[in-house]
Nucleic acid binder design. Structure first.
Lengths: 209, 209
DNA sequence: GCGATTAATGAATCTAGATTAGATTCAAAA
DNA sequence: TTTTGAATCTAATCTAGATTCATTAATCGC
């Protein structure tokens, strides 16, 4: 069902051997980007992790930039889709603030545990060349939109304290979440611990008493 | 009292013309790093902004890495010192949660308005080569320590809700703050607006009701 | 088994940028 | 006026990586 070492990179099982190699390169790039960051990511590092020589990468991708752009695109959409899926599975009468907390959990899980691609996005989105950034814009905007809606709905039913600037609050919350890969380490704290505290912070930070 | 264009980069007035040039290069590097990020920062960009040819930089700094390391060191300590100064100026009986809010404000001000150096640090600390990172470790740890104390004190007087993991909460809050340079733009929102919402989020997010 | 296509390689090339070498300017001291 | 040292420049060098390419190895349809 899956090709990577990382628990649940939910790639469809590749149809051909070639597609498998391509996925392996992509996954290696995602992992390297998530660990070392954009500037320190050499094509040679990626190739090595994928068990290949650097030129082989060009058989599958037009350029290093192309490869990285694809990692980011996958990461961005995987992030958004995971959160959307989780939200869609909630009972229809779930209170808005509970939906926000579910989104917090989903975001953290995908970013810290499920996908190197998502990690790569949050760790590097601020460092990308304009070129790549432009390609992410649409998907990224959709994700912001999702959060905007979550907050707006909560506000509409009076679940958000007065005096909170919704745009600012949204960016602060997303910032707190996006920064987690910089400090969280699976070996020293439990993921559910992070999730619980983040939810508590958000719920009481935004919520009316 | 000051040499830069940016409002309040509180450098001491340089003793000699040479020192002024050095400061100009440093400031140019800080600004470039804060705007373009580590990977996109060319020595040529810095030199141009400082009104020089790239080789001239070597008259003042041993290498690009050295220059960047110094920017980061200045930024990190400026950030910490500004927050420390603000906290030290508070009345001694200021309640712990108010002290936290003051720190939030100070951090945001120095990062978003007062110092390109501080911005450079929060935007790039995750991308730096191990080498430079090592040099920041001490100062950076001191800053974390400061926040640790702030939260621990608040907790001690019962100002923090139960069920909050202090370490996680601290990192989430600092993440929210450190992420702000990625999205905040002076032209579209007021700084005080950001500050107010951030304080509200933190106060209610952490605080006992 | 056997050509044809697909995958991958080692060795060579190309290039952006950092760095160095050496020449030049210029203000101040002698 | 000459000398000197500090500050800067232009032109050349050096290097890490990305990229290209001619060739080899693997795989597949028959």
């Amino acid at each position: 069902m899956d090709t990577t070492s990382n628990g649940a990179e939910g790639a469809v099982v590749p149809a051909t051997k070639a597609a498998a190699t391509r996925d392996r390169i992509l996954a290696a790039a995602a992992r390297t980007l998530s660990l070392k960051g954009y500037s320190a990511t050499r094509l040679a590092d990626i190739a090595e992790l994928a068990g290949l020589r650097p030129p082989a990468v060009y058989y599958y991708f037009a350029s290093r930039e192309e490869l990285i752009a694809e990692v980011m695109a996958v990461g961005q959409s995987r992030l958004r889709e995971h959160v959307e899926t989780v939200l869609a599975a909630l009972p229809h009468d779930t209170p808005p603030m509970d939906r926000i907390c579910a989104a917090v959990e989903a975001h953290l899980r995908v970013e810290l545990d499920l996908s190197d691609f998502a990690t790569a996005v949050s760790r590097n989105s601020g460092q990308l060349p304009e070129d790549i950034r432009a390609r992410l814009r649409e998907d990224s905007a959709a994700y912001f939109e999702l959060w905007r809606d979550l907050l707006a709905t909560a506000k509409a039913v009076g679940a958000v304290r007065a005096g909170i600037d919704l745009r600012v609050a949204r960016m602060l919350v997303m910032g707190a979440l996006n920064w987690t890969p910089e400090w969280w380490n699976p070996r020293q704290g439990s993921l559910t611990g992070v999730i619980r505290t983040a939810q508590s912070l958000v719920r009481h930070g935004l919520g009316a008493p």
